[in-house]
Amino acid sequence: MKLQKSLIFFMTLFLLVSCTNDSDSDLNDNQVPVSITYTNSIKSIIDANCISCHGTSPTNGASISLKTYQNVKDAELNFGLILRISKAQGAAGMMPNGGTRLPQSKIDEVINWKNNGFKE
């Protein structure tokens, strides 16, 4: 019994000593979350993937412009922008049309932007 108590004591001591950290960053992610806004996130996604067809004067069969904050917000509210960019690669109506589906992380940014009130 004494051997068991000693063994438990040393195992507990070992665990306590080995559970240390070198700095606060080991315990905390010190990155401040960035609020997703049109200006800091969404505009660059649209510019990189949509503007070639959805510019000031839409081309290649595009029916709407996505050049401004209001255009992009209206595209979600009235034309299902998120639905279109969320479709599977090659599905009818998938955007960008004829291109590669956006990475899910970019689609999630657009969804978060909408869910947080379309911050400009």
Results as ranks from 00 to 15, higher is better:
112 N>V: 12
19 C>G: 11
78 N>A: 05
107 I>T: 06
71 N>C: 03
8 I>D: 10
2 K>G: 03
67 K>D: 11
103 P>N: 15
102 L>Q: 04
47 D>N: 07
22 D>V: 09
76 E>L: 01
22 D>R: 15
109 E>L: 06
53 C>L: 07
96 P>S: 13
43 K>T: 10
73 K>A: 05
113 W>Y: 10
67 K>F: 01
59 T>F: 00
20 T>R: 15
30 N>D: 14
7 L>D: 06
40 N>D: 14
62 A>I: 06
104 Q>F: 00
22 D>W: 04
33 P>Y: 09
29 D>M: 12
12 T>N: 08
36 I>T: 11
29 D>R: 08
90 G>P: 06
76 E>N: 10
46 I>E: 08
57 S>M: 09
91 A>Y: 05
63 S>T: 11
60 N>F: 09
90 G>T: 13
65 S>T: 12
57 S>C: 01
35 S>T: 12
3 L>K: 14
30 N>I: 10
11 M>N: 14
26 D>C: 10
8 I>C: 04
114 K>T: 07
40 N>G: 03
44 S>P: 01
80 G>R: 04
106 K>W: 05
17 V>L: 15
83 L>H: 09
83 L>R: 14
68 T>V: 09
48 A>E: 14
19 C>H: 14
66 L>F: 00
60 N>T: 05
119 K>R: 15
69 Y>D: 02
39 T>N: 15
9 F>T: 14
94 M>T: 08
101 R>S: 07
19 C>M: 11
24 D>Y: 03
4 Q>N: 07
23 S>R: 14
9 F>Y: 09
30 N>P: 00
6 S>C: 13
95 M>T: 07
109 E>M: 07
21 N>E: 05
66 L>K: 04
23 S>F: 01
58 P>R: 06
76 E>A: 05
72 V>W: 06
107 I>A: 01
6 S>M: 14
103 P>C: 12
86 S>E: 09
106 K>M: 07
59 T>A: 14
90 G>I: 02
1 M>K: 10
63 S>I: 04
51 I>W: 05
32 V>W: 01
72 V>N: 09
120 E>D: 11
19 C>I: 10
15 L>I: 13
81 L>D: 10
11 M>G: 11
42 I>Y: 04
93 G>Q: 12
48 A>I: 03
107 I>K: 10
110 V>N: 08
11 M>R: 08
33 P>L: 06
70 Q>R: 10
45 I>E: 10
59 T>E: 09
30 N>W: 13
28 N>H: 10
104 Q>A: 05
98 G>E: 08
109 E>F: 08
18 S>W: 12
44 S>Q: 11
116 N>D: 09
110 V>M: 13
51 I>M: 12
65 S>K: 02
29 D>K: 07
32 V>H: 03
75 A>G: 03
1 M>P: 02
65 S>I: 03
30 N>G: 01
39 T>M: 05
13 L>S: 12
78 N>E: 12
68 T>K: 11
58 P>N: 15
52 S>W: 09
15 L>K: 05
6 S>P: 00
19 C>V: 08
115 N>M: 08
15 L>A: 14
31 Q>C: 07
64 I>N: 12
32 V>F: 11
10 F>E: 02
96 P>N: 11
85 I>S: 06
21 N>F: 10
105 S>M: 00
19 C>L: 15
51 I>S: 11
74 D>R: 14
14 F>L: 15
10 F>N: 08
55 G>V: 01
87 K>D: 04
